[in-house]
Structure formats: C-alpha cells, structure tokens
Design a protein around this nucleic acid. Structure first.
Lengths: 159, 159
DNA sequence: TTACAATAGTTTACATGTAAAATGATTGCT
DNA sequence: AGCAATCATTTTACATGTAAACTATTGTAA
C-alpha cells in the first residue's frame, strides 16, 4: 500500500526517492490545484488570475506604479507584463501614463471600474480561501506559512 | 515592520487579511519560484517541465499508457496533452500507437532516447531538490507534506 | 561632449494552460 | 439493426510564462 496520499493521487508505483522530492511535488501539485480553483472563480468576473493579481497589487499600493515594479512583485518574468497590461487597459481596468521626469518609465494607474470590480470580488475570494483551507487550524496555517517561507530562503537570500 | 517574510517579499503594505490568505499566497509563490528553477534546469537538457513530467510518468509506469491517463495524473486539463505529446514525438521521446481493440485510444510509449535522457537528468534533479529544500529537517519536510495533503482534502474528496 | 554602459519597456517566437466545440469510435438501448 | 449517448482525442481560440533581441532614455566617464 502506498505510504502517502500524494503517491495515491498520482498513482505512483514506487515510493518517493526522498522526503525532499515528495515535499516539492506536494507544493507544486497543491499550487496547481488552487490556482485552477481561483482561475474558475475569477473567470466569472471576467479576469484571469494574473490580471487579478496585478489589480490587487495596484489597489494595495494606492497609487500608480511603474510596470516593472508590478512585475517584480509577481514572480513573473519581465516581458509578460506588457501584454498583461495591454489587456487590462483594453478592458478599462488600468491606464498607462508616461512619466515626465524619466521618459523610460510607464506608470500604471488602476481605474474606478477596476476598484469597483475588486470590491465585488472580495467576499467571493475570501469564501474560496475558507473553502480551500478553512479546515486547517490557526496553528497548522502558521506552520505551513513558516515552512514555506523557510523553503524559499534557499533562493531569496542569494542566487 | 512587516509581520511575515512573505509580506516583505511582495512589499505588501497591509498585513494579510487572514492566515488562510497568507498560507495560500505562500503556496502559490513558493510553487512559482520552484517551478521556475526546475524549468531552468530542464531547459539545459532541452525539455520543459511539462514534458519532463510526462516522461517521468511514462518511465514510472513502465509500459505504454493512454494519453488521457497521462493527463489525468498531471493536474492538466485534457486538450493540452495533445500538443505536449506532439512535441515529445517530434523530438523522438515518445511514440503514438493506436490501440487495436479500442481504436479511440492512443497509447503513448517512451523511447530509449528519452530513457537515456532521463537517466542523465536524475542526478542534477536530485541535486536541485537538495539545493531548494535540503535545509529543512526530515521532520519539517514531513510536516510540510502532511499539511499540504491535508490542504488538498477539501477538493480531492468531493467537488 | 562624445562614447558606452545601464535602465525601462516592448517585440518576437515558442511552449503551456484553459474552455468550448468538433471528430471518430464504441457502447447501450429499443 | 438503428441510433442516441458516451468516450478518447483533437482542434480552435485566447491568455500566460519564458528567453532573446531591440528601442528609447538616462547615467557615467574619458
């Protein structure tokens, strides 16, 4: 019989090579599944996860931001941000404003339309958070975040 | 001062709305970063993470598999598997074989060339696992896997 | 001041993930 | 036997993620 739930889920015949491999596959798989769930919710409101992410960053910042600074807060590679902003602009969710002091910089500003949409999405999103991991205790959630943050330290420090 | 490391990383001004939100963002972000790291490693060998994933599933199974069964073990939505197999076939990493009994089914078989490539990649991949989360103790890794598996139970049971 | 490096963003090319609809084959039912 | 439902897979259309190369602008140094 399989040792772990993940091993059953992916019908893996052999046990995992290591605890490290198992943990990493668990991270990737859980993320894929959750990302998919959020994608379905967001689609009902006409936006993709990445678009929603950009809008949340802009709302959180409270003022226009250079586009590369937005990209920087996402894991995202630089060139992808351009098309993302293009589509948000086409939907009237953001405006581009060339900076007068440094004409290389493009400031991105969120629109009232987008803020209204986000406002409408806040509760459904909160509900999905609860649905997905509301069954974990506060201690488990804290442990989970702590372990994931520790996992990332191998990369955030150097490299 | 920010309460969590994640809050610093994404330069979020406000604390998280909830432990649930923080945990979910930690899962998504860690996964993105790790996925990116594996992508870079795999690219050195000429394959993408998804392609590598398919080949690993085929090697693990030990015999040809229907394409939808491969898709099923990945989180992947069905239609994406077609193009994925197309490109693997173009690189001589898999062969398509129409099943004679049920002509709807296409069996996918891994080639010796792909097995040789996988063999060559085993050690580098193991090293990357170590590099990424080798600094977590065995207990931490077990806890992490256990918590992530528990997180997924909200979806694997029903829905 | 001119030459060159560094920055901010965009374009291009290609692989992927998602949904909806189409194709071809097989099964179940009358 | 005939035909609708089902199944495995593919096609199409669009948004995203990644790398490499390119443009415009700014900073720096000889």
């Amino acid at each position: 019989m399989p040792h772990s739930n993940l091993q059953q889920e992916i019908r893996k015949k052999q046990p995992f090579d290591s605890l490290e491999q198992e943990a990493i596959l668990n991270i990737l798989r859980t993320s894929d599944i959750f990302h998919n769930q959020f994608g379905r919710l967001f689609r009902e409101f006409g936006v993709t996860p990445s678009q929603y992410n950009v809008l949340r960053i802009l709302r959180g910042e409270g003022k226009p931001m250079p586009s590369l600074e937005i990209a920087d807060r996402m894991v995202q590679v630089v060139p992808a941000i351009t098309g993302l902003i293009d589509r948000l602009q086409a939907q009237d969710f953001v405006k581009r404003k060339r900076c007068t002091e440094d004409r290389r910089v493009v400031f991105i500003e969120i629109t009232a339309k987008a803020l209204a949409l986000l406002n409408q999405m806040d509760e459904p999103e909160l509900n999905l958070h609860q649905k997905l991991i509301g069954h974990l205790s506060a201690e488990e959630l804290s442990d989970l975040s702590r372990l994931l943050e520790k996992a990332r330290t191998s990369l955030t420090t150097d490299n």
